[in-house]
Amino acid sequence: MGAAEAAQARKVSPDTHAAMAQGYRFVGEVVGGVLGGVGLGWLLDRFAHTQPWGVVGGLLIGTGFSIFTAVTAAARSSKKELDALGPLPSAPDDEDED
Rank of each mutant, 00 (worst) to 15 (best):
A21S: 13
A19V: 04
A4Y: 01
P87V: 06
L35Y: 05
E97T: 07
A6T: 12
V56M: 09
P14H: 03
A18D: 07
S90H: 12
E5R: 10
Q51V: 13
A21Q: 11
I67C: 11
A48G: 07
D45C: 10
D83L: 14
R46G: 05
P92K: 08
D93G: 11
G28M: 10
G62V: 07
G28E: 08
T69N: 11
T16H: 08
D45L: 08
D94Q: 09
L82Q: 15
D94E: 12
D96R: 06
A48S: 11
V55C: 02
K79Q: 11
A9M: 03
G57E: 02
S90I: 11
V31Q: 05
P14Q: 04
R76S: 12
F65S: 14
A75D: 05
L60F: 13
D96I: 13
L59M: 03
W53L: 08
P89W: 05
T72G: 10
A4F: 06
D45M: 06
G33T: 09
Q8W: 00
W53H: 10
R25H: 14
P14D: 05
I61T: 13
T72V: 13
V34H: 02
T50H: 05
G62A: 03
L35M: 13
E97C: 02
V31N: 03
G23K: 09
G58L: 00
G39I: 01
A70R: 00
G86P: 09
S13C: 02
G28I: 08
T72S: 15
E95W: 01
L85C: 04
I61S: 10
A73C: 00
A70C: 02
P87C: 03
I67Q: 06
Q8N: 11
M1Y: 11
H49K: 09
D15Q: 11
K11H: 06
F68L: 13
G57P: 04
L35W: 03
P92V: 04
G2D: 15
V34Q: 00
A74Q: 06
R76Y: 07
V56G: 07
A18W: 00
V31M: 10
M20T: 11
A6F: 04
Q22V: 03
L40I: 14
D15Y: 04
A73T: 13
V34N: 02
G41Y: 05
F68D: 09
E97Q: 07
T50Y: 06
D98V: 03
I67T: 14
T63A: 15
G33E: 07
A3G: 00
V12N: 06
H49P: 01
G32K: 09
I67D: 03
T50D: 04
G41I: 04
G62T: 07
G23F: 14
R46K: 13
G86N: 05
A4P: 02
M20L: 14
W53A: 07
A75Y: 00
Q22C: 04
M20V: 14
V30C: 08
G32E: 10
A19E: 06
L43A: 12
D96S: 11
E5G: 14
L43K: 02
A75P: 01
A84T: 12
A84H: 10
R10L: 12
G28K: 10
A91S: 15
E97L: 10
A70P: 07
L60E: 01
G32R: 08
L85F: 01
G54D: 09
V55A: 10
K11W: 00
D45Y: 06
V30W: 02
V27S: 14
A91T: 15
G33N: 09
